[in-house]
Amino acid sequence: MSQPARRDVLKSLALGGGLTLIVGPVAHALAPRPPGQPADPATRWALLVDTRACKVDCAACVDACNREMGLKQPTDPDFDPAHDAQYIRKVTLRDPDTGHTTAPPVMCQHCAKPPCVDVCPTGASMQRADHIVQVDKHLCIGCRYCMMACPYKARSFVHQDLTDQKPHNPRGKGCVESCNLCVHRIDRGEPPACVAACQRDGGGAMVFGDLADPNSDLNRRLAEAGGHRIRADLGLDTGVYYQGL
């Protein structure tokens, strides 16, 4: 894992005097990957959520995710909050001292050191070379140890038979699933559905990009305004940053 830590990237940014030349990994812009080519280990796909631009009552990202992945919407009449899958959810946060309220979306945080991958007995929970954390559902035996291990409650278990799944998101009874940053879209050169929807219909709060690419928009914004990571104390080196929390 020769992944440059974010700190180092920031440091080299500072040393290089802002956005000038940096010797290091080449820039990895979002582009369709040609058939036959594996995911690139020099990439670290990541998200940035600017909660100041994220409206409390907007759920464009959740909506888009559920539609893309073929999940039920929380607004559906037959939605079962205890059992139905939620890859992404809006968590309403109220500061008891000031009363200030935000509602950032929370999804799989795509840890660089994912506990779900560590605990999975079969290796079904896995990290792709480009640092996307996902379930290889062909190996998942449904033990749910990953759900016990995830600090973010990012995972869901499929509790019953499903029909009419989306061809790009096969899912079925007895396996665990979660946000995979829309691998199928990334591999086609498109950003995750939630990000696309947030840019289009939402407040433009979500940014998708390559954390390993110092010139990415994501890194530029982080260098400008910093970022917070959920439960950073656990040292999991998550790939989802929040601003304005």
């Binding site: 990957r33 036959g36 594996p38 792709r128 070379a129 559902k137 062909h138 591999d187």
Partner: peptide
Amino acid sequence: RRTEAVRAGIRQPAESLT
């Protein structure tokens, strides 16, 4: 194919299950 596609991220639309 499925191992390559899911684990390594190697897409081969022409050989996919769909």
